[in-house]
Design a protein around this nucleic acid. Structure first.
Lengths: 205, 205
DNA sequence: GTCTATAGCTGGATAGAC
DNA sequence: GTCTATCCAGCTATAGAC
């Protein structure tokens, strides 16, 4: 490694950690005041710099939201794809739903940024979105291991899960009124899907 | 009726229709630009008046949102409680879910104002909220006629319905990808609830 | 009740010195 | 890269003439 490369890496690293500090400050602010209430003035003050300095690291406010989205998507992938203890596919499915609801309810602005479209003109970049796509692929695999591959059933599953999260957040924040229903919820879903298989077991394939 | 009362009624009526015109203009704007993008400048221009005149009819911007909420809640009650054709409780339940999804998906800002909490500091007044409460009471009655009274099952139902709406709106706006699932959805729910009755039929009461 | 005019504030983003 | 100073636009809300 040449001397100039060493220096470059050093500067890159400094720059990266400075960006991270700004993003951290942004998360602290949106957790206090709400996702859409983020302002560059407050952000700069919180990060111990001035407004123009923010623009040395991010092109615009949207770029900051995008960095936050990317971080949230990485956390989502990590949370949902880390190994599951039980072997039973059904237990894995229950555990995954538990993790999903826990992930969403434990950080409200993160959930809003990641799964709702509450910021007026903001669309995440493909790079930032990629981890979330990978996590959703894994979710489909977990369902497949339970014998569920019908697209209609996959759509039902997503509606079930997001409804559970929304009700828990909206009507019992900090509680577990809907979280307690998870076991029954999964039983209901599996019983319905497996009772009307697309490819009846009598058929040879 | 005395002459002064007549005049008073007349003025009240004029005032009422002027307020209604402002609220109508507000709806037109939020349908065009989004619920949170409503500004008093645009609103006044659209209504053919000036900003200060708006304050002759509403104390603040929040008061306008509250009037909109009240109107939306009345529409919701009307839509959900108007008579249902079929006698079969199950068919009524299906029809009510169909109406609910239709109501929510047909007017996105109305749905956001009524069922999500997307406006930063806004809370509806008790008066504006009242029709929505009445409609939800009727919903519980429809479930009761299907033999469903367990609070856990009622919570499951609300999660099911709101999840269906959210997925339809977020992932297939204008389409019917989740609406098509309604029949299966209700079958799944009823089969689950009635299979594990709280008061088993073997017990004498 | 309706207007003109404007106060008072906050927002994102930039110019230019250092 | 970081600052001071500032621009320009938007917002809610009010003062005061008519």
């Amino acid at each position: 490694m040449s001397k100039t490369e060493e220096v470059t890496d050093w500067r890159e690293s400094r720059r990266h950690s400075a960006r991270a500090a700004i993003v951290d400050a942004a998360w602290a602010l949106v957790r206090k005041d709400g996702l859409s209430a983020l302002s560059l003035r407050d952000l700069a003050r919180r990060a111990g710099i001035t407004t123009p300095t923010v623009y040395a690291y991010f092109d615009s406010k949207a770029a900051i939201y995008d960095a936050m989205f990317g971080q949230a998507a990485e956390q989502f992938e990590l949370e949902m794809t880390s190994p599951y203890d039980p072997d039973d596919p059904r237990e894995v499915l229950v555990a995954s739903l538990r993790r999903f609801v826990g992930f969403c309810t434990s950080d409200l602005p993160r959930h809003q940024l990641l799964f709702q479209r509450t910021i007026p003109g903001f669309e995440p970049s493909a790079d930032s979105y990629a981890p979330a796509v990978r996590a959703l692929t894994k979710a489909r695999e977990r369902l497949a291991k339970n014998g569920i591959t019908d697209p209609r059933h996959l759509d039902m599953w997503t509606a079930l899960t997001i409804g559970l999260v929304d009700q828990q957040i909206s009507n019992d924040p900090g509680g577990d009124r809907w979280i307690r229903l998870i076991d029954d919820y999964v039983s209901m879903f599996l019983a319905h899907c497996l009772q009307q298989p697309l490819h009846p077991p009598t058929a040879r394939e």
